[in-house]
Every structure is written in structure tokens, then in C-alpha cells.
Write a protein that binds this DNA or RNA. Structure first.
Length: 480
RNA sequence: GGGGUAGUCGUCUAGCUUGGUCAAGGAUACCAGCCUGGGGCGCUGGCGGUCCUGGGUUCAAAUCCCAGCUACCCCA
């Protein structure tokens, strides 16, 4: 059963608040495996909702789902040198089957480029075989040595990884960008988390990619969180895996590839961005339960009349396509249920009690503002649909405002450090594009370049670090 | 990568400073029964603990020491 409410305030102890919210809302729990977590019903339902939305989008654009093996032979993982170097420190290896040592050790996939592209090499012969546009939902393992955090950094996590192969660079560029736009749509219009979109620096890009595009959100504690990435892999992998085809001019070509992914850490972002001192606040489009109906029986009032009204409303809501629960558990008081559903983040609660029955109304309580509104019974469905919409857009607007307030423009390194330590957030600054400066800044402050925005911004000062001529405007932050 | 804090019924915790009064107390949860219901209702009774693990010190360890495990926090 669920525990009592949160004992700390979000504004007072953010880390503790986060852990408590995740555990007590029933999203997740620890298990016996260090650094790993249990995705409980509540978070898994959210994940399924995200899957449904994303599947719809990628299938509509010609992608298909597949499943590749969990294990990758060492020789395959090693093929692309930069890729291997990037991942090897956190690869979990299988060395034995029973008591028998394996002839070649197997990596538990940290990502599936290599195992998938070995197959692509077999499947591609002609320009007619292209493009290949596959996606898989799975878990990956990255053996973190640093402290883990529920949803944000665990040794195993769930994600989707898309892997495509194209005839031309332009096509692959386009694919990487199209996917990033889909991601952005999901983050902003479903999760209600506004993101910055841009390109990673060479230092921060996916190991083995030509370039990496990314979406970055800011958390209330001023740290950035990478929400999804989409990589143009160029021909780096196709050359080492020998994925090639004969084009229409009978010339042999290597394919151009992309890979892209987002993970369950998005759920953590949603908790951080929207949650409050009562627990989760879920955006209506993502909430597994959008409307919870709590009947309020009173002695002396016919319980029948209340539950029948409640059931009636639930049926109407279900017909209208809303995810609804009628919480008619008799063993809990209404007040207890209010608290529980608030902890779990249900966007709207509908109360039906004697007062409502008498006046032919129901009472709606918004999770995001705690506001209570009475509406006529016959107008309840329309009112709820409208209110869910309103909550969704208000949550995004609120988060957008937070993003703006958490973005600071600086012209000097002194200012940079001051802002970083005082409030964090995104720090917009001019940079000479030299990796040395980038590295030094990271060493001295812990901040990294999160991205270079797609929409080119005009340089407005010398390089923040070396004070030489700046070449681009970039966004720095400390990140999760 | 570096540092810090913590681990006692399912959960939160008292006890630890100063070893014995603790074969571990409370709250909550859970079970039974009553009573109720518009913000975590109330009453009665009941169930529940390898005091994280392993060593050590001691007549005596939840308490002191060492090691390990796990979690959390902070810093680079």
C-alpha cells in the first residue's frame, strides 16, 4: 500500500523531494540489484502511453519495429573505434555460460548500432533495398560507476532506438532532423516540457557519429537534462560494417545512416518539472488516468443515488475517450483518496456528493491549481475535455516561463561563473569554437556546452574563456 | 573521480553521546470488529523485528572499533 505524503518541500530540498515523490507516488522502487530500479505500474503505464504516441508517429512515416539480440560479440562492438572507446568503460560483459568460459565474451548491449548494422550489411545490396527504417523498444545496460538516480541514471533503462540507412547524405540529414522534430513535439505538446533544440559539439557528440542533434530541458534545480538525441552517423559505420549497395549507375556506394533515441529518463524530467509539494502533476495527455471520480457518500443520503450518478458519468467519459477511474473503495475516506490521487498526479478529480446531487452538479478539482469548479451534470463531459486541454496548455506555458527565467546571457567568464553558481540554468554565451576552451570550462566549472542552437544567433562578445574572436553562440549548463 | 551522512517491525522512527534499566518503545501500515465519510476519521483488540552483513573489544553490544554491502546527499 502507498505510504503517507511527502515530508519535504520541492523548494527546500529538491533531491530528497524528487526521491520521495518517485517512490511514494508508486512510479518506481528499488530492487535487489544495485544501481537498477523497478518501473512500477504507474511509470510503466506512462511509458506505454509514450510508446503509443511515438509508434504512431514513426509508423506513419514508414518506420517499423523490430527486436535484435541483447548480446553483442566483442568483435562487433569493437569495429567502429570511436564508438567502442566511448562505450567500453561502462559495458557489462558476459564471460561464462554456466561454468564454461565463452570463446568470445559478449557485451550486454549499451546501444545496438553494431549488432544491427552487422545485419544491415547482409540486407542491403541494391538501391532498391533502401531506405531501411527500423526502431526497437528495449532496455540497455550502461554500467554506471557514478551515483545513480531513479529514472535519470540507472544501470539499466528502457528506451527506443531507431536505426536507419539511406542512399544519400541529404536523406540521412533529413531523417535525423525529422525525428528530432517528432521528439520535440512529444516533449512539448505531450509531456509539456519545453526544450532547446540544437547541435552537440564534437566533444559532446555521440561517439561514432558525424554529428549529434539534441533536445535539452532545464530542471527546477538549474541542471540541464538531455531529453533525446538524433545522430547523423555519416558513413562511419557503413564503412566498417561494409553496408553498401549498387546505385542506379551501377556504382558501389556506402549507405548513410542515422540513429536516435529517447529513454525513460523523460519520466524523471516530467516529475521534476511539473511536480509539487503534494506529489506528481501529470500532463493530461500523458496521465494514465486523466479523471478520477470520487463519490462522497453521507449517512442519511442514499448511497445508491451517488454511485449511480458516478457510474453514469464514468461511462460517458469512457465513451468520450477519457481514461477514467471510479474510486469507489469503501474502506478509504474521501479525504484520503484526494491525497492519494494528488500524490499520483491525476489531472482532474471529480467529486460527487449529496450537495452535488441536490444541485444537479459535479465538482471538478484541478490538480495543477487546486482550484475547484462546480459544473452541471449534463455539461460535465464537455467541461472536463475543455479543462484537460486547459491544464495541458497551462502546464506547458508555466514550464516555458521557467525555461526563460532559467536562461541567462553572459558576456564574461566572471559573470558566467557567478550565474552558474547562483542559479544555474542555461547560460547563453559566445564561444570561439575551440575544444580547448570548452574542456577548460568543463574542468573549472563542471558546465558543458549543451548545444549550439539551430537558429544561428549573432555573436555578442568575445569568447567567454579565451577572449579571442568568438564564432558562435552556445548554451552551457551543468547537466544530469 | 573525491568527500559526507545514514541503515532498528512493511514504512517512519525512539534508543546510540555515557555499553547493563532493551529477550528493543512509539507512530503509521496491515488483520478483526464497531463507527464513519466534502482534505490522509475515531475507538477496541491483534499481527509484525536476523537492531544491514561479517568480524573484533567486553562479564555484557542496537549502542564502541574494523571491514564489507546498500541507499541518499554534496563537490569536481
Amino acid at each position: 500500500m502507498s505510504d503517507m505524503g511527502l515530508t519535504v518541500k520541492k523548494s527546500e530540498d529538491f533531491s530528497e523531494w524528487y526521491t520521495q515523490t518517485v517512490l511514494k507516488s508508486g512510479l518506481a522502487d528499488y530492487s535487489s540489484v544495485k544501481g537498477c530500479m523497478i518501473f512500477r505500474e504507474h511509470s510503466y503505464a506512462i511509458w506505454e502511453k509514450i510508446q503509443k504516441i511515438f509508434n504512431q508517429k514513426i509508423k506513419a512515416t514508414g518506420h517499423r519495429n523490430v527486436y535484435f539480440p541483447l548480446f553483442i560479440p566483442e568483435s562487433l562492438l569493437k569495429k567502429e573505434a570511436a564508438h567502442f572507446a566511448g562505450f567500453v568503460p561502462e559495458v557489462a560483459w558476459i564471460t561464462h555460460g554456466g561454468d564454461t568460459p565463452l570463446e568470445e565474451k559478449l557485451a550486454v548491449r549499451p546501444t545496438s548500432e553494431t549488432i544491427m548494422y552487422a545485419a544491415y550489411a547482409k540486407w542491403v545490396r541494391s538501391w532498391r533495398d533502401l531506405p531501411i527504417k527500423l526502431n526497437q523498444w528495449c532496455s540497455v545496460v550502461r554500467w554506471e560507476t557514478e551515483a545513480t538516480k531513479l529514472f535519470l541514471r540507472t544501470r539499466e533503462f528502457l528506451w527506443q532506438e531507431g536505426h536507419t540507412a539511406h542512399a544519400t547524405k541529404e536523406e540521412a540529414d533529413q531523417e535525423a532532423m525529422d525525428i528530432l522534430h517528432m521528439y520535440k513535439d512529444i516533449m512539448e505538446n505531450y509531456l509539456a516540457i519545453p526544450v532547446l533544440a540544437g547541435k552537440k559539439t564534437d566533444r559532446e557528440k555521440f561517439k561514432g557519429a558525424l554529428y549529434t542533434t539534441t533536445l535539452e530541458a532545464i530542471m527546477p534545480d538549474g541542471k540541464a537534462l538531455q531529453m533525446g538525441t538524433s545522430h547523423q552517423l555519416g558513413q562511419n559505420f557503413s564503412k566498417v560494417f561494409d553496408i553498401k549497395y549498387l546505385d542506379q549507375k551501377e556504382k558501389e556506394q556506402h549507405v548513410w545512416q542515422t540513429s536516435w533515441g529517447f529513454s525513460t529518463r523523460m519520466i524523471g524530467a516530467m516529475v521534476m518539472v511539473h511536480g509539487d509539494d503534494k506529489g506528481l502533476v501529470l500532463p493530461p495527455k500523458i496521465a494514465p488516468i486523466q479523471v478520477v471520480i470520487v463519490p462522497i457518500p453521507y449517512k442519511g443520503t442514499s448511497i445508491e443515488s451517488i454511485t449511480s450518478k458516478a457510474k453514469e458519468l464514468q461511462e460517458k467519459l469512457q465513451k468520450a475517450g477519457l481514461a477514467t477511474v471510479l474510486d469507489d473503495r469503501e474502506e478509504y475516506t474521501p479525504g484520503w483518496k484526494f491525497n492519494e490521487w494528488e500524490l499520483k498526479g491525476a489531472p482532474i478529480r471529480v467529486e460527487i456528493g449529496p450537495r452535488d446531487i441536490k444541485q444537479g452538479q459535479v465538482t471538478l478539482a484541478r490538480r495543477d491549481t487546486s482550484q475547484k469548479i462546480a459544473v452541471k451534470q449534463e455539461e460535465a463531459v464537455d467541461a472536463l475535455i475543455k479543462l484537460l486541454d486547459e491544464i495541458q496548455s497551462r502546464m506547458l506555458a508555466k514550464a516555458k516561463k521557467a525555461l526563460e527565467e532559467n536562461t541567462t546571457t553572459v558576456k564574461t567568464y566572471e559573470e558566467f561563473k557567478k550565474v552558474l553558481n547562483a542559479k544555474g540554468g542555461f547560460i547563453r554565451a559566445s564561444w570561439c569554437a575551440d575544444a580547448g576552451c570548452e574542456e577548460k570550462i568543463k574542468e573549472e566549472t563542471g558546465a558543458t556546452i549543451r548545444l549550439e542552437p539551430f537558429e544561428k544567433e549573432t555573436v555578442f562578445s568575445k569568447c567567454i574563456y579565451c577572449e579571442k574572436e568568438a564564432k558562435k553562440v552556445v548554451y552551457f549548463a551543468r547537466a544530469y
